[in-house]
Computed example of a mutant assay.
Amino acid sequence: MCVGATAGRALKTVLQGILLSSEDEKMNSMDLLRYMAPVAVLLLVPATLIMEREAFGVVATLAREDPNFIWILLCNSSMAYFVNLTNFLVTKHTSPLTLQVLGNAKGAVAVVVSILIFRNPVTFVGMLGYGITVAGVVLYGEAKKRSK
C-alpha cells in the first residue's frame, strides 16, 4: 500500500508539473485546483462511504453537539485548500521532483517534532529510515547546486 501510495503521489505530481509548465496548456495553479477538486471528491466520498461507513453520521452528531465543530471543519478544509494551492505553485516554479523531495523532508521533520514534543519511541530501523531520508534530501540539494 505504501509503495502504491508513493507511486500514485509521484504520478500526480508529474502530471501537475506537465500541466503547469506546458506551453500548450497555459494552466495556472488555481485552474488546476478547480479541475482536480471535483475529481478528488468523486473518488474520496465513495471511498469514505465504503471504508468508514459511520464517518458522515459521526460528523453530523459532532456538529449537533458542538456548533464550533463546523467552524473547525471549515478551517481544516481551508487549510487543505491552501496546502494544495501551495503544492501546485511549488511544482510550477520548481519541479515535480523537488516537490517530492520536500514532501519527504516534511515527513522526516514531522517525525522529529513528534519525538521532541510527544516523546514517541522510535526503533533503530525507523531511525535508519529517517536518516536515509535526510541524507537523500541533502544529496538532492547538493546535486541541484552543482547542476546550476
Results as ranks from 00 to 15, higher is better:
106 K>V: 11
73 L>Y: 09
42 L>C: 12
1 M>N: 02
43 L>I: 07
42 L>S: 08
17 G>S: 05
72 I>W: 14
134 V>S: 03
101 V>R: 10
78 S>E: 06
133 T>Y: 03
59 V>N: 07
69 F>T: 14
38 P>T: 09
71 W>T: 13
47 A>I: 06
113 V>H: 04
55 A>G: 01
30 M>G: 09
20 L>Y: 02
115 I>R: 11
43 L>A: 13
129 G>V: 01
70 I>D: 01
79 M>K: 14
77 S>N: 14
4 G>F: 13
10 A>L: 15
83 V>G: 07
26 K>C: 08
111 V>T: 09
76 N>Q: 13
148 K>P: 00
40 A>E: 10
25 E>A: 14
118 F>E: 11
60 A>T: 04
56 F>I: 08
6 T>P: 01
116 L>Y: 06
72 I>E: 03
134 V>I: 15
35 Y>D: 15
81 Y>Q: 02
36 M>V: 12
35 Y>Q: 13
14 V>A: 14
86 T>D: 02
92 K>I: 13
47 A>K: 02
65 E>N: 04
44 L>M: 04
102 L>F: 02
112 V>L: 06
148 K>I: 05
11 L>M: 10
68 N>I: 00
18 I>Q: 05
98 T>D: 04
48 T>A: 15
14 V>W: 14
6 T>R: 13
127 M>A: 13
102 L>Y: 08
77 S>G: 15
96 P>H: 06
123 T>R: 01
52 E>T: 04
41 V>A: 15
37 A>N: 08
89 L>G: 10
115 I>M: 07
66 D>R: 13
12 K>Y: 15
141 G>E: 11
103 G>F: 01
44 L>E: 06
45 V>F: 04
66 D>V: 12
113 V>R: 01
145 K>I: 10
124 F>R: 06
60 A>C: 01
49 L>T: 05
122 V>L: 08
43 L>F: 03
